[in-house]
Simulated scan of single mutants.
Amino acid sequence: MSTETYIPLKTLCTHYKVETSFFQGLNEYGLIEITTIEHAPCVHHDHIKNLESIIRLHQDLHINFEGIDTVMNLLEKINTLQNELIAAKNRLRIFEE
């Protein structure tokens, strides 16, 4: 496991101007996964895009963890439906030609 792919929570707290307890709450609610590397809690860099969305929802719209969970689930469903729609349109193009 490469430590280069993980970002320490301390760095994230400084960058996003949030408390460590915010990330711990997200972890407890299952919205993010915190991994401990060399005694430091970290988040995988692949999850940063979702994490930024979560932080914006919390800071800008003042949405609590339950609301964030709902919004993230709905966004995931929308993304899935959009992908299914694109696949269906691609299949229909075969019959149009």
Rank of each mutant, 00 (worst) to 15 (best):
H58V: 02
I37D: 02
R56N: 07
Q24P: 00
L92Y: 13
H44G: 04
A40H: 12
L57R: 09
F65T: 05
V18L: 10
I68W: 00
H45L: 08
D60M: 07
Y16Q: 03
E97Y: 14
C13H: 07
I86M: 02
L26Y: 02
L81M: 15
I32L: 04
H45W: 03
T5E: 13
H39V: 03
T3F: 10
E4K: 10
Q24K: 11
I32N: 02
F65K: 00
Y29N: 09
T36H: 11
E33A: 13
F22R: 04
T35G: 04
C13L: 07
V43N: 03
L85D: 01
E84I: 08
E38V: 12
I54D: 02
K17H: 12
N73V: 07
N83I: 05
I7D: 05
I48K: 02
D60P: 02
T20L: 09
E52G: 08
R93D: 14
N64L: 06
I32Y: 01
L61H: 12
V43Q: 00
I78C: 08
I32V: 11
H44F: 14
E28F: 05
A40N: 14
Y6V: 02
C42E: 00
N27R: 00
R93F: 11
L57D: 09
V43D: 03
D69K: 06
E52V: 06
E19C: 02
D60F: 05
F23T: 02
S2H: 12
Y16D: 03
T11A: 14
E52M: 10
E97T: 14
L51D: 04
T20N: 11
A40M: 14
Q82R: 12
L75D: 07
K17P: 01
I48A: 01
